[in-house]
Design a protein around this nucleic acid. Structure first.
Length: 325
DNA sequence: TTATGTTTAAATCGAA
DNA sequence: TTCGATTTAAACATAA
């Protein structure tokens, strides 16, 4: 029996929790983050049930955003004014939906207090950097864009505060945070393995391969000049988490570990389980691309680059993770 | 003024 | 029956 599409719930209440609905909205957006008003819009456009009693469910939704650790508030960039912040999903929170289905939530996503506090520090450091007057930013002219989309968070590159590996290596937490005030992580620091500990993101974020398995949190971008070998433009949420990880655990991946896979840091606890990001369903075009690419070595390009965002914004099917419908 | 965000509390529901 | 997740309501603060 074919299950009804999302739109066909009509006036009936959809079987999704507010957390699921919000995650859906965020996940469907090209930038993987949305302001509150756009989350409202997403839900009301797709689910007629939520076109009434708006005050009630919107209050509940706001409660969920604040209450649940799986949602991260990303401060607006000065050149993108507006009311309220952007909301993103914690990368590790993708794991909370069983089989990638928004219908089933495996467990509540809760960060340990220490890591929650650290994340606040990370976000605060980003917010601090985004308060720099826009006239003094180097990336203002759009070099921090991806597919024409600019980040609301922290794509500022302040003159005089350019990234220095030395400052991270020798400057301690303070310098690490300072360095992370802009979200560009030099390639030598980009982790590369396939293991991930959901319970200890501070460690897992430093695991090699993390960003390959969490494509929405990292958008590839070659950097000119100051970062030899290029670097990655991180999603603001990822940047905050990265800063938090550095701040709490002091986990830094030494550049001399390159080339080749980065060795696990001595402080890393053994991963109790493997984590793999549920892959979104492919469009036909993407399947062709994947087939064509299968003969070549594994790409380092984040998955987001092949996500058909135009389709995801127009079709509810594209929001589904494997296992749904 | 209104939208947004935080927090607390209570009710409901389903799984263990 | 208990426990945890979710929903709902409400009060309050803050920012645009």
């Amino acid at each position: 029996m074919p299950r009804p599409s999302r739109e066909s719930y009509g006036d009936q209440k959809p079987p999704y929790s507010y957390i699921s609905l919000t995650a859906m909205a965020i996940w469907s957006s090209p930038e993987k983050m949305l302001p509150l008003s756009d989350i409202y819009r997403f839900i009301t456009e797709r689910f007629p049930y939520y076109r009434r009693n708006t005050q009630r469910w919107q209050n509940s939704l706001r409660h969920n955003l604040s209450f649940n650790d799986c949602f991260i508030k990303i401060p607006r960039r000065p050149d993108r004014p507006g009311k309220g912040a952007y909301w993103a999903l914690h990368p590790a929170a993708l794991d909370m939906f069983e089989n990638g289905s928004f219908l089933r939530r495996r467990k509540r996503f809760k960060l340990p207090k220490l890591e929650k506090d650290a994340l606040e520090v990370g976000l605060a450091s980003i917010q601090q950097s985004s308060n720099v007057p826009s006239g003094s930013t180097m990336l203002k002219s759009g070099s921090s864009t991806h597919q024409g989309q600019q980040y609301a968070g922290s794509s500022l590159h302040t003159p005089g505060k350019s990234f220095s590996i030395e400052s991270i290596m020798h400057g301690g937490t303070e310098a690490a945070l300072q360095a992370l005030q802009h979200p560009v992580v030099p390639q030598p620091f980009m982790p590369r393995t396939s293991s991930f500990c959901p319970s200890t993101y501070g460690s897992s974020i430093s695991s090699p391969g993390y960003f390959h398995h969490h494509p929405p949190v990292c958008l590839q971008q070659q950097l000119p000049g100051s970062c030899p070998g290029g670097g990655y433009l991180m999603h603001p949420a990822a940047a905050a988490i990265y800063a938090a990880a550095l701040a709490t655990a002091g986990l830094l991946l030494p550049p001399q570990a390159l080339p080749g896979p980065v060795k696990p840091h001595a402080l890393l606890a053994p991963c109790p389980q493997q984590f793999a990001l549920p892959a979104p369903p492919l469009t036909n075009t993407q399947r062709v691309i994947e087939l064509e690419d299968s003969a070549s070595p594994p790409p380092s390009t984040p998955l987001l680059d092949v996500v058909d965002t135009s389709a995801s914004s127009s079709s509810s099917d594209c929001l589904q993770l494997p296992g749904e419908l």
